[in-house]
């Protein structure tokens, strides 16, 4: 067992433990924070395997942007401190989820564990990575960016259409009606 194996095992254990905590914690914001630890240690795994740029992009995009967005969205809700009964799942759901999770884990482990071997570090140069990405894999890459663009435009359209279909005007009309009733009561 080399130092690399030890390092990989350490970040792997942290990733698995924090992932488990993220789905089992009763505090909704804690779940997002454990997700940060989990994604960070997955970046650590990439780093141990020699994929420096992938690890850095993982931190920049997932920790720096995606989780921040998740936390921001949570804060727009009530984001309670401490566990809340009304947003917890029932015992049955939890048991089912545990069984399903265990099943997937066993399946993946039975397939992947026989393939396990000591850490084989490939130092991946950024130049090599970019040549592959913009050479061999350029079409999947471009199609993916098109997909993301479509999702972006669709999100904008959904929010715009929702506003135009009269939610706002309905709200205003209702507020005005309430105001009139209130005035009528007063006079």
């Amino acid at each position: 067992m080399t130092g690399l194996d030890l390092a990989f095992a350490a970040v792997g254990v942290v990733a698995a433990a924090s992932g488990l905590l993220a789905v089992t914690t009763r505090h909704v914001v804690h779940a997002a924070l454990w997700l940060v630890v989990c994604l960070g240690s997955v970046a650590g795994c990439y780093l141990v395997l020699g994929a420096e740029l992938v690890a850095l992009v993982q931190v920049l995009v997932y920790v720096g942007a995606v989780v921040v967005l998740v936390l921001f969205a949570l804060m727009l809700t009530r984001a309670p401190i401490g566990p809340r009964a009304e947003i917890s799942t029932s015992r049955l759901h939890r048991a089912l989820a545990a069984v399903l999770g265990a099943g997937v884990t066993v399946l993946l482990a039975s397939v992947l564990l026989p393939l396990a071997h000591p850490v084989d570090r490939h130092e991946t140069d950024t130049t090599v990575l970019s040549r592959e990405l913009f050479g061999t894999w350029v079409w999947p890459f471009e199609v993916l960016s098109l997909l993301l663009l479509a999702a972006l435009v669709a999100a904008l359209a959904v929010s715009r259409v929702g506003a135009r279909s009269g939610d706002v005007r309905d709200g205003a009309a209702r507020a005005e009606a309430e105001l009139r009733t209130a005035r009528g009561d007063a006079s």
């Binding site: 914001v29 924070l33 740029l53 850095l56 931190v59 920049l60 720096g64 921040v68 921001f72």
Partner: peptide, 28 residues
């Protein structure tokens, strides 16, 4: 002297915002 130093600095400083978010949420 990191080979991808520019990305490293950007990635690491992007983590700092989490401190502000945690502080703001946890203060009640």
């Amino acid at each position: 002297d990191a080979p991808a130093g520019a990305v490293f600095v950007l990635a690491v400083t992007a983590v700092g915002i989490l401190g502000t978010l945690m502080a703001g949420w946890a203060s009640a």
